[in-house]
Design a protein around this nucleic acid. Sequence first.
RNA 1: CGGGAUGUAGCGCAGCCCGGUAGCGCACACGUCUGGGGGGCGUGGGGUCGCAAGUUCGAAUCUUGUCAUCCCGACCA
Length: 492
Amino acid sequence: MSKELTTRAADYSQWYNDLVIKGELADYSAVRGCMVIKPYGYALWENMRDQLDRMFKETGHVNAYFPLFVPKSLFEAEEKNAEGFAKECAIVTHYRLKNDPDNKGKLIVDPEAKLEEELIIRPTSEAIIWNTYKGWIQSYRDLPILINQWANVVRWEMRTRLFLRTAEFLWQEGHTAHATKDEAVEETKKMLEVYAEFVENYMAVPVIKGVKTANERFAGAEETYCIEALMQDGKALQAGTSHFLGQNFAKAFDVQFLNKENKKEYVWATSWGVSTRLIGALIMAHSDDQGLIMPPKIAPLQVVIVPIYKGEESKNVIDDKVADIIKELKALGISVKYDNSDNARPGWKFAEYELKGVPVRIALGLRDIENNVVELARRDTKEKKSVAIEGLGSYVKVLLEDIQQNIFNRALAFRNENIREANTWDEFVTLLDTKAGFVSAHWDGTSEAEEKIKEQTKATIRCIPLNNKQEAGKCILTGNPSTQRVLFARAY
RNA sequence: CGGGAUGUAGCGCAGCCCGGUAGCGCACACGUCUGGGGGGCGUGGGGUCGCAAGUUCGAAUCUUGUCAUCCCGACCA
């Protein structure tokens, strides 16, 4: 099977879809807007999940699991949150089917089995969790609660895209409860740091940490912190969010505690999440026209070995040699696959593993064995060289670290080249239309101006970067005074 | 929800305008030569043409309806 990929230049969206489908990360399913995550894609998600999970636990969190369904009365308790998600909720109204009397072999919803109260399939779990926390919290001694859950959620999106926006997606959502505002704010920021560290150090995708404007804030939050990444087509992608929820949910669900002075206070809350969308970010940040490029630290497979043989006899010789190499690599904690299957030829395998983004490929035949070398190819630069079998393990280990660093540096350089300042409206519009990327510009801080800019340019304020430099300026739209620049971009 | 497109073999497509025995490439199976960048040759298997009505002697093809998916837009992690 030849797997022709659309190039980025020809059709960026199609290129992305081709990588996901032909790279065997995911497949379309029989359900509109829902995808099947295939084993290779799921292995990637598992690696991401496992690392994040370690980081959450290192920062004091524990995992738990809450129901998929949220009774409507709970869902609507926090008004802003409910309003924000209402338009995209799937709702369970019945609990039973029955045989269709008019159509043999078919089923219909049993009208007798209507639920007293509709159940909302969670688009996010604040409601069900805060309803639960109410029963868990009486005293300041019960705080903080630092819980994370790995779950699926459903958001009935109008238009979906593999990994970037599916109707059902996998994610983690942290939900913490604190006795003081300061502690909750600190938690919000801490988790933003965890996300930034994960995305940069493991996924090799550079991010900008910032705060969302009121318009872009999570429904029900007081403050939304985010990490924003830049894709190769110049569009921004929100890679993770961490919300300071204030006392909104505590008030909505009446969660109070007695403080040390024996006075009742509402609990302070945070929530934070990243999803399978990160896989979309990973693909669009690194990959090229030959296929995916996996960062070694989370690659489902770090090294693939392809034998070059002629006939059974030479295959056996190579198999023996490779067994030693695999042993050495595995001892160093490197994941490795030996593909000596006879149903594809070497050239086909080379292309296939490039498509899948395996960071390092080792090829060897009798010729190499005689010389005690292998041919080693790195996916990020496609550079090939002959490397001694002696000490191959440590060579590969260093190489994997180098690839990890190299793809991060490459993405960082691209990101930095694509942050440009605009000082006038014309400059702003021209930059958006000709260069894409982030545009750093002054904004007067009003929602009205933000809305108008969005209407006219489709660009949104991605964030107000943390530690932003304060400088006097004029809003590019209104000319009103401004104290700092914010980052605009067209976004996914 | 607005606009555009597509449903024919596992995948990608042609055939439809102008109705008359369902075709190509890849994949798959077997054999063989091969093997250092998506192999060659030979043989073979596989499809109620998305679904439902209608027109007709006859429908993949014409008509109507319907369902689904994809792409672009608005919305959104």
